[in-house]
Design a protein around this nucleic acid. Sequence first.
DNA 1: ATTAAATGCATAATTATTTTATGTATATAT
DNA 2: ATATATACATAAAATAATTATGCATTTAAT
Lengths: 112, 112
Amino acid sequence: MKKSELYKGSLATIILKLLNEHDKMYGYEITQRVKEITKGELHITEGALYPSLHKLQDNGFLDVEVVKTGNRLRKYYKLTEEGTRETIRKLAELESYIKTMRVLVNPKYRLQ
Amino acid sequence: MKKSELYKGSLATIILKLLNEHDKMYGYEITQRVKEITKGELHITEGALYPSLHKLQDNGFLDVEVVKTGNRLRKYYKLTEEGTRETIRKLAELESYIKTMRVLVNPKYRLQ
DNA sequence: ATTAAATGCATAATTATTTTATGTATATAT
DNA sequence: ATATATACATAAAATAATTATGCATTTAAT
């Protein structure tokens, strides 16, 4: 991804959430959308993206539909039902992560 | 660490921030403090902790002082000046990460 | 018309980080 | 006497991401 190592481990969450919003997307589209939303802050590399998409697919979280646009291929990815459940789990994990890190980093916060 | 992969890449930030608060700490103390503060949410393993401490030391961010307590060794780690600067950088990165992830995950937020 | 840049997929080698497993030893509680 | 906690450490394996390639089509620029 970029700059901060904190993004390590976040890619699946990002992909799942984008697909949760946009119904179906193809790989390149995901990289562009992320760049756009984050104002260039975060750049998803293809070397990270494609293996991650394939893994999510293997785990049954994504379905694929190959579409030929002109003479070029696009592989549209779409959440499965299990993928939607996984998205919810991942988002909960993100909230929990943020909460925990805030507590660690900002001593005036506390977990109850 | 534990459960969520999101913690990958966060260990140095956690160590630095704890040392920033507590002046000097030894490894085992760090694991216990983290467990305590996070109510058991996060468990730092020794296999991750010690290499990370050594690396921070090699990078000049930490100084070490070995203390013999009874018959047992403790290695107290302490931020160097550069380590304090690194802490500030890492905390800024964490804030940036959280902001960016919020934007990605919660479409009603925007970066300006 | 030609070239460069953007679009679109993919994988392989390398690097970095973490987990899991293991090792050693002392101190304390049961 | 034994188990648990304290305290360090490293090595093998797993995981994930970066960097480097590779191939091909389409669009924009010169």
